[in-house]
C-alpha cells in the first residue's frame, strides 16, 4: 500500500467512532458569519470612512483622487518626495499607464523579470481586486497585480484602486473572489492589511520587516 492509502485507512478507521458535536453541526452561512463579526455600517459612505480609519490605524496611506489627472500629479509628487529612481509595475489599464507617465526606468513584471532587478526598484505599482472596509485590506492576486513579488519585494507598494472595487466585509471579499476567479483561481491570492510589520523584539511594532515599509492606496 502507498503511504496515501495507509493514511486514509487510518483516518477511515478512526472516524468509525463517532464524536459528540458539543457546539452543533452544519457549516455556517455568510449570514451566520455576519451576525457575529465586526459591524461595518449600513451605508457605503460609512464603509468608505471605515476603510480610511482602518488604513490610518494600520499606518498605510489612503488617498481618494477625483480623476486620472489628479492621480498622476499625486503619484508624481510621491515619486519626487521619495526620490524614486526605478519603479516596477505590470500591464494594466490604470497602473501601467500611470507608471509610464512618471518617465522613470520601469520594470514590467508581466513576462517574468529578474528578481535582482525587481529588488532594486524603489516602488512597485499594482492594481488590486478589492478593498475591504471591515479590516482596511487590499486584495491582490498573482494574475491581476503583476505576479507574486511585485507587491512584496520593493520597499513601497502603491495600489491603484477604483471606487467600485470596495466591498464591505470579508465574507463579501471571498464571494467576490469566487465570482471573479471561481472557474480558474490564480495561484496566489493575498489579503494585504497594512505595510509589512513585526513585533518579534519585545512586542514593539516595527514596519517593513521583510515586505514593503510603506503601503499607499490611491482610490479613483
Amino acid at each position: 500500500m502507498s503511504e496515501r492509502e495507509n493514511i486514509f485507512a487510518r483516518i477511515k478507521e478512526a472516524l468509525t467512532i463517532h464524536a459528540h458535536a458539543h457546539h452543533g453541526t452544519g457549516l455556517p452561512t455568510a449570514a451566520d458569519q455576519r451576525r457575529v463579526m465586526p459591524s461595518v455600517g449600513a451605508t457605503t459612505d460609512e464603509q468608505f470612512a471605515l476603510f480610511a480609519k482602518n488604513a490610518a490605524d494600520l499606518k498605510a496611506t489612503f488617498k481618494i483622487v477625483q480623476d486620472e489627472t489628479e492621480l498622476r500629479s499625486e503619484l508624481t509628487a510621491l515619486a519626487a518626495a521619495e526620490k524614486w529612481v526605478r519603479i516596477a509595475t505590470h500591464k494594466s489599464s490604470l497602473a501601467g499607464a500611470l507608471a509610464a507617465s512618471l518617465n522613470l526606468p520601469t520594470l514590467m513584471t508581466d513576462e517574468g523579470c529578474d528578481k535582482h532587478e525587481l529588488e532594486k526598484c524603489d516602488a512597485g505599482i499594482s492594481e488590486c481586486d478589492a478593498l475591504v472596509a471591515q479590516t482596511g485590506t487590499v486584495v491582490v492576486t498573482s494574475r491581476t497585480a503583476g505576479g507574486r513579488a511585485l507587491s512584496c519585494l520593493p520597499p513601497h507598494h502603491v495600489v491603484i484602486a477604483r471606487r467600485e472595487q470596495f466591498v464591505a466585509d470579508l465574507p463579501a471579499a471571498f464571494a467576490l473572489i469566487r465570482q471573479k476567479h471561481g472557474a480558474n483561481y490564480p495561484s496566489m491570492i493575498s489579503f494585504i492589511t497594512g505595510p509589512s510589520r513585526t513585533g518579534d523584539i519585545e512586542r514593539i511594532l516595527v514596519l517593513g520587516a521583510h515586505g514593503p515599509k510603506k503601503l499607499t492606496i490611491f482610490c479613483l
Binding site: T109, S142, A149, S187, M188, R197
Partner: peptide, 17 residues
C-alpha cells in the same frame, strides 16, 4: 498583515512564482 492563499506553482500567463 498578509493572509495568502496558494493553489499551485506559477500558472500559465502569470508573471512569477
Amino acid at each position: 498583515c498578509y493572509n495568502t492563499m496558494y493553489g499551485g506553482p506559477r500558472q500559465p500567463g502569470e508573471a512569477d512564482g
